[in-house]
């Protein structure tokens, strides 16, 4: 399986990435190589092999339901590009 320029362009749009023609061309080749590797993996016979959902043979630790985080808004907002009245400001969405 390989990715054409058109598909790379669409993926870039969904990922909000702006690519030059040269980059689109280059990534098309690189992404296709990854997909080819996946095809190779797919070709392996996995009959009788149990699906692995996670590489670690461990299970999720649970946290007790208590709110212990202090309010560190000022520290967080110091590094934000734009804030006002406690809100983070971003370019107009709609």
């Amino acid at each position: 399986m390989s990715l054409g320029l058109e598909q790379v362009h669409q993926i870039a749009t969904l990922a909000r990435l702006e690519l030059t023609d040269e980059q689109t061309e280059r990534y098309s080749g690189q992404l296709s190589a990854i997909l080819e590797l996946v095809d190779e993996l797919r070709a392996a016979d996995t009959t009788g092999v149990e699906a692995m959902n996670h590489p670690l043979g461990m299970t999720q630790r649970l946290r007790p339901d208590t709110a212990t985080e202090p309010n560190r808004r000022d520290a967080f907002q110091e590094v934000a590009p734009a804030v006002d009245n406690g809100l983070y400001l971003v370019p107009k969405v709609i």
Partner: peptide
């Protein structure tokens, strides 16, 4: 998202 609070920005409360 608070869309109406600012003319050219959107306010975000997380």
């Amino acid at each position: 998202s608070l869309h109406d609070a600012y003319p050219h920005m959107t306010g975000i409360d997380l």
